[in-house]
Design a protein around this nucleic acid. Structure first.
Length: 312
DNA sequence: AAGACGAAAGTGGTTGA
DNA sequence: TCAACAACTTTCGTCTT
């Protein structure tokens, strides 16, 4: 390989063409890569939904383990060897040179934004690791952050809070029932009230990036709440049935799903003879006693009119 | 005394003129 | 930009177990 690669130029020249199905987007590096031949196809890519979502189930499976935590102090955590491991390819030298020269995670982006993104990606890794999130969720967060940065949404805002918001959004997109509170607990932000700041940024991301956030299902919270209280399987099952009924009667519209889940667990525990107080249930659910009470009251009304047929 | 209940006032976000 | 609005929280007094 005699000729030198210019930064920002395609690296694929002189290499075999990459079959389309082997093209993957790497959100950490912000590049498109040929998995088969191990070269960078395009730098400075913000995101590419189509290809990102083209991962097959097995790949998703393979990716769904959080690896050894990367050093957060180092701005470049060995991008080339990481790539080689991930894509199972030894990269041609000129590619590794390209990656090194690009300052990792910043291909095609320069200066301050470069630093901003690097810091944010480190933070995202850190948050994901402390919550034990699967890789594909962290990667989604990285993708979201890149796009936000590209649209100037990050300017003037706390990097940590934006990174946290990206992680939260990624969790929501992939239906992981983490709360703002869970995330806020493992990241420090600029403002006194991290939940509020992260939440604000989250809404900003959703609006300006047109993120499709599925409505969170109360069911997702149930096992979380039940196990936090040390309640057995049958209570969970009963709570699920209660929620089913509640849904059928339109009790879920516009309500905090956590509150409904909490009330359902509370109610199920009562029926099964486990005495948990409203306060206990509320505190592990991220809602207040009053909300548990209100949902519980509404549930009772429905189940009363339905009679014992509910079979809880 | 602790838990459940309910009323009242306050908060932050959404919606629509 | 402002006001009305819905959902939730905070606070607190009163029952119930």
């Amino acid at each position: 390989m005699p000729e030198k690669n210019e930064k920002g130029k395609k690296a694929g020249e002189g290499l075999p063409p990459c079959p389309p199905e082997e093209i993957v987007y790497d959100p950490w590096l912000g590049v498109k890569i040929c998995r088969k031949y191990g070269y960078i196809i395009e730098e400075g890519v913000i995101s590419d939904d189509a290809e990102w979502r083209a991962y097959t189930p097995e790949e998703k499976q393979r990716r769904s383990r959080v690896g050894t935590p990367l050093s957060v102090s180092s701005p470049n955590y060995g991008a080339d060897s990481m790539l080689a491991r991930r894509y199972g390819t030894r990269l041609p030298q000129k590619v590794t040179r390209l990656i090194r020269g690009s300052g990792f995670a910043s291909a095609g982006v320069t200066g301050n934004m470069d630093r901003n993104i690097n810091q944010a990606l480190s933070k995202i890794k850190e948050i994901a690791a402390s919550l034990g999130l699967p890789d594909y969720v962290a990667e989604e967060a990285a993708r979201i952050y890149r796009e936000a940065a590209a649209r100037g949404l990050t300017r003037g805002r706390s990097i940590n809070a934006m990174a946290a918001a990206a992680v939260f959004a990624a969790c929501r997109i992939h239906n992981l029932p983490y709360t703002l509170e869970d995330i806020a607990k493992v990241v420090d932000t600029r403002e006194a009230d991290p939940k509020r700041e992260i939440g604000r940024n989250f809404r900003l991301l959703v609006r300006d990036l047109d993120l499709k956030i599925p409505v969170i299902k109360p069911e997702l919270y149930v096992s979380r709440i039940a196990s936090a209280l040390g309640l057995p399987e049958d209570v969970q099952a009963a709570a699920m049935r209660i929620i089913e009924i509640a849904k059928k009667y339109g009790l879920t519209a516009g309500k905090d799903p956590g509150g409904l889940a909490a009330a359902a667990v509370y109610m199920a525990a009562q029926k099964k003879g486990y005495k948990k107080t409203q306060k206990e249930v509320a505190s592990v659910s991220g809602v207040t006693e009053v909300t548990v009470r209100n949902r519980y009251k509404e549930l009772m009304k429905i189940l009363k009119t339905l009679g014992a047929e509910a079979g809880v």
